[in-house]
Structure formats: structure tokens, C-alpha cells
Simulated assay, not measured.
Amino acid sequence: MNAGAGRGGRALVPGRRRRARPEVTLTNYEAVYDFYGPGRRRDGFTHPLLAFVGALYAPELRIRPETVDEVHRLHDAGVGIIVAANHPSAHDPFVLASAVFDERVRFLASGTGLTKDPLFRGPLRPVFEYTGTVPVFRAKNYEGTARAVHDAAAARLIDLCVDRLVSGGVVLTFVEGTNSSADDLRTLRPESVKKGVGQMVRGVREAGDRVAVLPIGIVYRGREHARLPPRRPVVAAGPLALWEGPGSAPSIDEVRYAVRDGIDDALTDAWSEVY
């Protein structure tokens, strides 16, 4: 997953002085997003890692041929694509990353991934950094911090994602923001889809560009909380949602409901024994 991939992605210029790696905390969000904004992906690290993770989890990607054709058509036309998934397990970042490394849609694996910031303060930081993932500061991890700081950090992250999408890139996000409750494993409740995906779509439309969402449903069939990597999870793609043409930008809730319906369609396919 690459924070700098896609049309218009900014690569580091040879000879430019490297920024110091910042401490990844909410109060330091400006330095964090300055650092991760240009992209930190290293393909020589990412591609072997995704191949290994794919072999470890061996997810089944269920995506219809017409959807494959459409995502390629949109990407080739410079349309930004949001891969919007549910979040039933702590294994999801690895399962989603390896699923979109499937040769049918491999360009999606070069997108900007989003994940919780604590993962950037331990030994796994290089794994997420060198795959181009960007930290997300969740309010529940920073109780007592002024609301204005939370809001400013969230706005900066949305701006970063909108920039990627306007440049024709890909953003991969888990729309629930945290692991699914037991009530959301087979169908998502509307309130479980947080506003971030709506803010991204609205931001791109306000900038006058087209944007598409590819809804994804991930299913482990009762092994969501397995400690060891569960084999053969199912990752299903729902129908693409596309916002284009003239007119006002959609409301955040309109996007949330459309994305929820698409993920529900994907979950129906993922839970089906026959595809």
C-alpha cells in the first residue's frame, strides 16, 4: 500500500535532504503528515512482503470480471478509487493487502493504506512505513486531548487522501474505524460506517473530480479472532459506486449509505458457499 502511488504521486527527489522520522503521536500530527504525505513506500520491500503474506493467509478474492474491467477503465482514465472494507478481525490489514495483490487488480495494492497510529510506535513500524501506510489518530486512544486537536488531525488526513484521489490514486480504508462488532459480521448497520469515507468522496467532488468506491466484504467464517493467521479467508468485491458528472457534491450520509449497501452486497457474496 503506497502513500505516494497513483497519477501525480510525488516521489522523493534524488539528493533532497531526508526529513527526520517524527514521533508518531497526535500532538505531533503536522510533522507526521508532512513526513508521510510524500510517500514512504519501498517496492523492493513491499512486493516480497505481500507475496509472503498472500501465501500465509491465501485469501480467496471474489471479484466479477465486469468489476475488474471497470476498475481498470476508471484507473486508466485517472479516476481516484477508494477501496472501502469492513473490519471483522485484527488480521484484516494483511488479508486486504494480499487480496488486492491479486494479479487481476494488482494496481490497487499500490494505494495509500490507513491504519491506527500505535502500530507506528513499535517494532512493526518499518512494515507499515515501507508499505506506504499512513497512521490514523483515533480519538479513543487520546482521551483528554482537546477536541480541536482531534478535528485538525482528522481534517489533515482527509486532505491527504483527497489529494491522492484527485491525482488518480487509490486509498484503502476500513470504514468502521475499528474491529466489527458481532452485529456487523454478516451485514453492516448504517451507523457502523463512519464519516471518513463520505468526507473523502465529498472532498473529491468539491474539487470537481470523479471518484469511485470499490466496496469490500471480508469473512473468516468464525475465525475472526484466531491468534494464528486463519487460512483461506474470503474477500469479496461488491459493485462499484461512481460519483461523476455535474451537480452538487453528495452529502456525507449519502456516501455512507451507498458504501454500506455495497459492502452488504459483498458480504452476501463472501458468506455464500457457492460463488
Rank of each mutant, 00 (worst) to 15 (best):
A20F: 06
E23Y: 09
V24Q: 03
Y36E: 01
P38M: 00
D43S: 12
T46E: 11
A55P: 01
P59F: 08
L61V: 15
R64M: 12
P65G: 05
P65Y: 03
H72Q: 14
A84S: 08
H87L: 12
H87M: 11
S89D: 04
A90L: 13
H91V: 09
L114W: 06
K116G: 14
P118M: 06
R121N: 14
V127H: 01
E129Q: 13
Y130Q: 15
T131L: 10
G132W: 00
T133G: 05
P135G: 05
R138I: 13
A139M: 11
Y142F: 11
D151I: 07
L157I: 05
L157V: 11
D163N: 11
L165G: 02
V166N: 05
G169L: 02
V170D: 04
V171Q: 08
V175Y: 04
N179D: 14
S180I: 01
S180M: 04
A182E: 15
A182S: 14
A182C: 01
D184K: 03
P190Y: 00
E191A: 14
G208E: 06
V213I: 07
P215D: 02
G217T: 10
G222F: 03
G238Q: 09
L240C: 07
G245H: 01
A249I: 03
E254A: 15
V255Q: 05
A258W: 02
R260M: 08
D261Q: 03
G262E: 04
I263E: 01
I263D: 02
I263F: 00
L267R: 13
D269V: 15
E273R: 13
V274G: 09
Y275A: 15
